[in-house]
Design a protein around this nucleic acid. Structure first.
Lengths: 118, 118
DNA sequence: TAGGTACTTAAACTGGAGTTTAAATAAGGA
DNA sequence: TCCTTATTTAAACTCCAGTTTAAGTACCTA
Protein backbone atom coordinates (compact mmCIF):
# COMPACT_ATOMS: atom_id res chain seq x y z
CA UNK A 1 0.00 0.00 0.00
CA UNK A 2 2.40 2.65 1.22
CA UNK A 3 0.56 5.76 -0.04
CA UNK A 4 3.09 8.16 -1.49
CA UNK A 5 2.76 11.75 -0.29
CA UNK A 6 1.50 14.40 -2.68
CA UNK A 7 4.66 16.44 -2.96
CA UNK A 8 6.69 13.35 -3.85
CA UNK A 9 4.19 12.53 -6.57
CA UNK A 10 4.35 16.06 -7.95
CA UNK A 11 8.14 16.19 -8.08
CA UNK A 12 8.25 12.63 -9.34
CA UNK A 13 5.94 13.65 -12.18
CA UNK A 14 8.14 16.65 -13.04
CA UNK A 15 11.24 14.45 -13.09
CA UNK A 16 10.78 13.34 -16.70
CA UNK A 17 11.40 15.61 -19.69
CA UNK A 18 8.47 14.19 -21.68
CA UNK A 19 6.06 14.95 -18.86
CA UNK A 20 7.40 18.49 -18.48
CA UNK A 21 7.01 18.96 -22.24
CA UNK A 22 3.41 17.76 -22.00
CA UNK A 23 2.69 20.30 -19.27
CA UNK A 24 4.32 23.03 -21.36
CA UNK A 25 2.16 22.09 -24.31
CA UNK A 26 -0.94 22.25 -22.12
CA UNK A 27 -0.19 25.85 -21.13
CA UNK A 28 -1.07 26.65 -24.74
CA UNK A 29 -4.52 25.20 -24.20
CA UNK A 30 -6.32 21.89 -23.88
CA UNK A 31 -5.21 18.99 -26.04
CA UNK A 32 -6.37 15.55 -27.03
CA UNK A 33 -4.16 12.56 -26.25
CA UNK A 34 -3.51 12.22 -29.98
CA UNK A 35 -2.33 15.85 -30.24
CA UNK A 36 0.21 15.10 -27.56
CA UNK A 37 1.27 11.71 -28.87
CA UNK A 38 2.17 13.03 -32.33
CA UNK A 39 4.75 15.38 -30.82
CA UNK A 40 6.79 12.63 -29.22
CA UNK A 41 8.50 9.68 -30.74
CA UNK A 42 6.75 7.15 -28.53
CA UNK A 43 3.97 4.63 -28.82
CA UNK A 44 0.48 5.42 -27.58
CA UNK A 45 0.68 3.29 -24.44
CA UNK A 46 3.84 5.12 -23.35
CA UNK A 47 1.99 8.44 -23.59
CA UNK A 48 -1.03 7.02 -21.79
CA UNK A 49 1.31 6.02 -19.01
CA UNK A 50 2.91 9.48 -18.69
CA UNK A 51 -0.52 11.07 -18.65
CA UNK A 52 -1.54 8.73 -15.84
CA UNK A 53 1.46 9.82 -13.80
CA UNK A 54 0.55 13.48 -14.34
CA UNK A 55 -3.07 12.78 -13.47
CA UNK A 56 -2.24 10.86 -10.30
CA UNK A 57 -0.05 13.75 -9.19
CA UNK A 58 -3.08 16.00 -9.66
CA UNK A 59 -1.34 18.12 -12.31
CA UNK A 60 -3.74 17.49 -15.18
CA UNK A 61 -7.41 16.77 -15.60
CA UNK A 62 -8.93 14.38 -18.12
CA UNK A 63 -12.34 14.79 -19.66
CA UNK A 64 -14.10 12.58 -22.21
CA UNK A 65 -15.49 14.03 -25.39
CA UNK A 66 -16.71 11.52 -27.97
CA UNK A 67 -13.80 9.19 -28.75
CA UNK A 68 -11.25 11.69 -27.48
CA UNK A 69 -9.80 12.31 -24.06
CA UNK A 70 -9.21 16.02 -23.49
CA UNK A 71 -6.35 16.97 -21.19
CA UNK A 72 -6.10 20.28 -19.33
CA UNK A 73 -3.87 21.73 -16.63
CA UNK A 74 -4.85 21.65 -12.97
CA UNK A 75 -2.93 24.57 -11.48
CA UNK A 76 -3.48 24.25 -7.72
CA UNK A 77 -1.10 21.38 -7.13
CA UNK A 78 1.76 22.98 -9.03
CA UNK A 79 1.46 25.83 -6.58
CA UNK A 80 2.32 23.50 -3.68
CA UNK A 81 5.44 22.39 -5.46
CA UNK A 82 6.49 25.95 -6.06
CA UNK A 83 5.87 26.87 -2.44
CA UNK A 84 8.02 24.09 -1.06
CA UNK A 85 10.97 25.16 -3.18
CA UNK A 86 10.60 28.86 -2.49
CA UNK A 87 10.32 28.26 1.26
CA UNK A 88 13.41 26.12 1.04
CA UNK A 89 15.30 28.88 -0.75
CA UNK A 90 14.08 31.48 1.72
CA UNK A 91 15.22 29.45 4.74
CA UNK A 92 18.47 28.75 3.03
CA UNK A 93 18.99 32.47 2.46
CA UNK A 94 18.40 33.11 6.16
CA UNK A 95 20.98 30.57 7.20
CA UNK A 96 23.37 32.02 4.66
CA UNK A 97 22.81 35.48 6.14
CA UNK A 98 23.47 34.16 9.62
CA UNK A 99 26.71 32.60 8.42
CA UNK A 100 27.73 35.85 6.75
CA UNK A 101 27.15 37.92 9.87
CA UNK A 102 28.99 35.32 11.91
CA UNK A 103 31.98 35.55 9.57
CA UNK A 104 31.75 39.33 9.61
CA UNK A 105 31.87 39.16 13.42
CA UNK A 106 34.87 36.86 13.24
CA UNK A 107 36.64 39.22 10.83
CA UNK A 108 36.03 42.16 13.15
CA UNK A 109 37.31 40.19 16.14
CA UNK A 110 40.38 39.21 14.17
CA UNK A 111 41.28 42.71 13.04
CA UNK A 112 40.67 44.02 16.57
CA UNK A 113 43.09 41.41 17.81
CA UNK A 114 45.56 42.40 15.11
CA UNK A 115 45.42 45.99 16.32
CA UNK A 116 45.87 44.91 19.92
CA UNK A 117 48.85 42.83 18.95
CA UNK A 118 50.61 45.76 17.35
CA UNK B 1 24.86 6.25 -21.03
CA UNK B 2 21.85 8.44 -21.66
CA UNK B 3 22.85 11.46 -19.52
CA UNK B 4 19.83 12.69 -17.60
CA UNK B 5 19.15 16.43 -17.84
CA UNK B 6 19.70 18.63 -14.83
CA UNK B 7 16.10 19.56 -14.16
CA UNK B 8 15.05 15.92 -14.15
CA UNK B 9 17.79 15.18 -11.64
CA UNK B 10 16.69 18.05 -9.42
CA UNK B 11 13.03 17.09 -9.40
CA UNK B 12 13.96 13.44 -9.08
CA UNK B 13 16.00 14.31 -6.00
CA UNK B 14 13.10 16.25 -4.49
CA UNK B 15 10.74 13.33 -5.11
CA UNK B 16 11.62 11.54 -1.89
CA UNK B 17 10.47 12.68 1.57
CA UNK B 18 13.74 11.70 3.23
CA UNK B 19 15.74 13.81 0.78
CA UNK B 20 13.45 16.79 1.26
CA UNK B 21 13.82 16.38 5.02
CA UNK B 22 17.61 16.32 4.64
CA UNK B 23 17.51 19.58 2.67
CA UNK B 24 15.24 21.12 5.31
CA UNK B 25 17.67 20.08 8.01
CA UNK B 26 20.54 21.65 6.08
CA UNK B 27 18.76 25.03 6.00
CA UNK B 28 19.49 25.09 9.73
CA UNK B 29 23.19 24.83 8.98
CA UNK B 30 25.84 22.36 7.90
CA UNK B 31 25.67 18.82 9.22
CA UNK B 32 27.78 15.70 9.36
CA UNK B 33 26.48 12.52 7.73
CA UNK B 34 26.06 11.08 11.22
CA UNK B 35 23.92 14.03 12.35
CA UNK B 36 21.60 13.32 9.47
CA UNK B 37 21.58 9.55 9.86
CA UNK B 38 20.48 9.65 13.50
CA UNK B 39 17.30 11.52 12.56
CA UNK B 40 16.03 8.81 10.23
CA UNK B 41 15.29 5.20 10.89
CA UNK B 42 17.62 3.93 8.18
CA UNK B 43 21.01 2.33 7.92
CA UNK B 44 24.11 4.34 7.04
CA UNK B 45 24.39 3.11 3.45
CA UNK B 46 20.80 4.19 2.75
CA UNK B 47 21.64 7.71 3.89
CA UNK B 48 24.88 7.70 1.92
CA UNK B 49 22.82 6.83 -1.12
CA UNK B 50 20.30 9.66 -0.63
CA UNK B 51 23.15 12.10 -0.13
CA UNK B 52 24.69 10.92 -3.39
CA UNK B 53 21.43 11.61 -5.21
CA UNK B 54 21.29 15.12 -3.74
CA UNK B 55 24.93 15.69 -4.60
CA UNK B 56 24.56 14.49 -8.19
CA UNK B 57 21.61 16.85 -8.62
CA UNK B 58 23.92 19.64 -7.46
CA UNK B 59 21.75 20.45 -4.45
CA UNK B 60 24.32 19.80 -1.74
CA UNK B 61 28.05 20.08 -1.35
CA UNK B 62 30.27 17.67 0.53
CA UNK B 63 33.48 18.60 2.29
CA UNK B 64 35.87 16.42 4.30
CA UNK B 65 36.86 17.32 7.81
CA UNK B 66 38.82 14.69 9.73
CA UNK B 67 36.72 11.49 9.75
CA UNK B 68 33.54 13.40 9.02
CA UNK B 69 31.91 14.48 5.79
CA UNK B 70 30.24 17.86 6.16
CA UNK B 71 27.17 18.53 4.04
CA UNK B 72 25.92 21.98 3.07
CA UNK B 73 23.29 23.40 0.75
CA UNK B 74 24.13 24.54 -2.77
CA UNK B 75 21.41 27.07 -3.56
CA UNK B 76 21.88 27.87 -7.25
CA UNK B 77 20.39 24.70 -8.65
CA UNK B 78 17.27 24.90 -6.53
CA UNK B 79 16.65 28.25 -8.16
CA UNK B 80 16.40 26.59 -11.59
CA UNK B 81 13.77 24.22 -10.28
CA UNK B 82 11.80 27.08 -8.82
CA UNK B 83 11.99 29.00 -12.08
CA UNK B 84 10.67 26.20 -14.20
CA UNK B 85 7.61 25.82 -11.97
CA UNK B 86 6.92 29.52 -11.72
CA UNK B 87 7.18 29.99 -15.49
CA UNK B 88 4.82 27.10 -15.92
CA UNK B 89 2.33 28.68 -13.55
CA UNK B 90 2.66 32.03 -15.24
CA UNK B 91 2.00 30.61 -18.70
CA UNK B 92 -0.86 28.62 -17.31
CA UNK B 93 -2.35 31.79 -15.83
CA UNK B 94 -2.14 33.47 -19.22
CA UNK B 95 -3.93 30.66 -20.96
CA UNK B 96 -6.52 30.67 -18.18
CA UNK B 97 -7.05 34.42 -18.71
CA UNK B 98 -7.47 33.88 -22.44
CA UNK B 99 -10.08 31.23 -21.75
CA UNK B 100 -11.87 33.50 -19.31
CA UNK B 101 -12.12 36.39 -21.75
CA UNK B 102 -13.25 33.98 -24.43
CA UNK B 103 -16.02 32.74 -22.16
CA UNK B 104 -16.92 36.32 -21.20
CA UNK B 105 -17.26 37.10 -24.89
CA UNK B 106 -19.46 34.06 -25.36
CA UNK B 107 -21.64 35.07 -22.41
CA UNK B 108 -22.09 38.59 -23.84
CA UNK B 109 -23.06 37.22 -27.26
CA UNK B 110 -25.51 34.88 -25.59
CA UNK B 111 -27.29 37.57 -23.54
CA UNK B 112 -27.41 39.87 -26.57
CA UNK B 113 -29.10 37.06 -28.45
CA UNK B 114 -31.50 36.56 -25.52
CA UNK B 115 -32.49 40.24 -25.70
CA UNK B 116 -32.94 40.04 -29.46
CA UNK B 117 -35.15 36.99 -29.03
CA UNK B 118 -37.52 38.76 -26.68
C1' DT C 1 -24.59 -3.57 -37.31
C1' DA C 2 -20.11 -3.36 -39.52
C1' DG C 3 -16.16 -0.60 -39.74
C1' DG C 4 -13.22 3.11 -38.41
C1' DT C 5 -11.13 6.26 -34.99
C1' DA C 6 -9.04 7.12 -30.58
C1' DC C 7 -7.45 5.39 -26.82
C1' DT C 8 -6.54 2.04 -22.92
C1' DT C 9 -5.38 -2.45 -20.83
C1' DA C 10 -2.57 -6.63 -20.64
C1' DA C 11 1.62 -8.95 -20.80
C1' DA C 12 6.29 -8.96 -20.96
C1' DC C 13 10.79 -7.09 -20.54
C1' DT C 14 14.78 -4.00 -19.11
C1' DG C 15 16.88 -1.27 -16.10
C1' DG C 16 17.26 1.59 -12.18
C1' DA C 17 15.73 3.13 -7.17
C1' DG C 18 15.90 2.07 -2.47
C1' DT C 19 17.18 -0.89 0.92
C1' DT C 20 19.93 -4.23 3.84
C1' DT C 21 24.08 -6.82 5.80
C1' DA C 22 28.86 -7.42 5.65
C1' DA C 23 33.32 -5.91 4.43
C1' DA C 24 36.55 -2.02 3.27
C1' DT C 25 38.65 2.54 3.92
C1' DA C 26 40.26 6.89 6.17
C1' DA C 27 41.67 9.67 9.93
C1' DG C 28 42.79 10.24 14.81
C1' DG C 29 44.10 8.61 19.33
C1' DA C 30 46.29 5.29 22.89
C1' DT D 1 51.08 -0.03 15.54
C1' DC D 2 46.48 -1.38 16.88
C1' DC D 3 41.89 0.32 18.04
C1' DT D 4 37.95 3.36 17.44
C1' DT D 5 34.98 6.45 14.99
C1' DA D 6 32.77 7.83 10.77
C1' DT D 7 31.45 6.79 6.50
C1' DT D 8 31.60 4.36 1.93
C1' DT D 9 31.71 0.38 -1.27
C1' DA D 10 30.16 -4.28 -2.57
C1' DA D 11 26.78 -7.62 -3.17
C1' DA D 12 22.30 -8.97 -3.18
C1' DC D 13 17.40 -8.37 -3.30
C1' DT D 14 12.71 -6.37 -4.16
C1' DC D 15 9.89 -3.46 -6.34
C1' DC D 16 8.60 0.09 -9.46
C1' DA D 17 9.36 3.14 -13.88
C1' DG D 18 9.31 3.20 -18.65
C1' DT D 19 8.74 1.01 -22.75
C1' DT D 20 6.97 -2.12 -26.49
C1' DT D 21 3.61 -5.19 -29.19
C1' DA D 22 -0.79 -7.14 -29.34
C1' DA D 23 -5.44 -7.27 -27.96
C1' DG D 24 -9.53 -4.91 -26.04
C1' DT D 25 -13.02 -1.08 -25.35
C1' DA D 26 -15.81 3.04 -26.40
C1' DC D 27 -17.91 6.06 -29.35
C1' DC D 28 -19.20 7.64 -33.97
C1' DT D 29 -20.67 7.09 -38.99
C1' DA D 30 -22.56 4.90 -42.83
Amino acid sequence: MEAIDRLSKVYGALAHPVRRAILTQLTRGEAKVGDIATRFDMTGPAITNHLKVLERAGLVHRRNEAQSRILSLEPGILREGEEWISNMRRFWQQSFDRLESHLAGARKAKSRKAREDR
